[in-house]
Amino acid sequence: MTMSTSHYQRRTKDQLAARVAQDIFDGAVVNLGIGQPTLVANHLPAGREVILHSENGILGMGPAPAAGQEDYDLINAGKQPVTLLPGGAYFHHADSFAMMRGGHLDICVLGAFQVSATGDLANWSTGEEGAIPAVGGAMDLAIGAKQTWVMMDLLTKKGESKIVAQCTYPLTGIGCVKRVYSDLATLECTPAGLKLIDKVEGLAHAELEKLVGLPIAA
């Protein structure tokens, strides 16, 4: 058999969301960040009961309402209309963030600009001159949940790795990311560096290391 370098396919956004959902255990309380992580809710395996937390004061958040049933007093962190499942609860903002910082959330899934091999996260600012800064709940979530997972494409549009030795964008939190779920591989961030959990079929370990530019323990 001849070795080839590119006989692999990236996970689609839905495949990636399904990959993340597969690791969310029955009974988990989970916060899904704005944007791509929101998709994970659509892929939770049947038979697993998961409670979704929304930073603006909701536990037991349900899916989007049917057209015409929107109630803008019931929105998610991205300000989109949602619903409440039976058993769900409302609470004020200080309680909502106490749930994060107090270590009561099992998992949060966030997007990222960069993650370091040891789990530093940069996801709130590109530090661009003149950009309007906005942080929202990202810093509280990143350091508060029992496990912080990042979901992102491994490479930028220019082909640079978003997993880096040291973040160059402004930090959201230090050493807070436990796992990175990407379109090419799932990696664990540890104090000793990256560790492989899985990768797409056909992508050789050496090739993945070359793309990331860092050693990855098998």
């Binding site: 930073e55 200080a94 909502s96």
Partner: peptide, 21 residues
């Protein structure tokens, strides 16, 4: 903000809630 007519103090959301509390 861009024209410098408004000062902004950016606070992580949980700190905002807890500082008020």
């Amino acid at each position: 903000y861009r024209s410098g007519k408004l000062e902004l103090e950016l606070v992580p959301q949980g700190n905002l809630a807890e500082r008020i509390r």
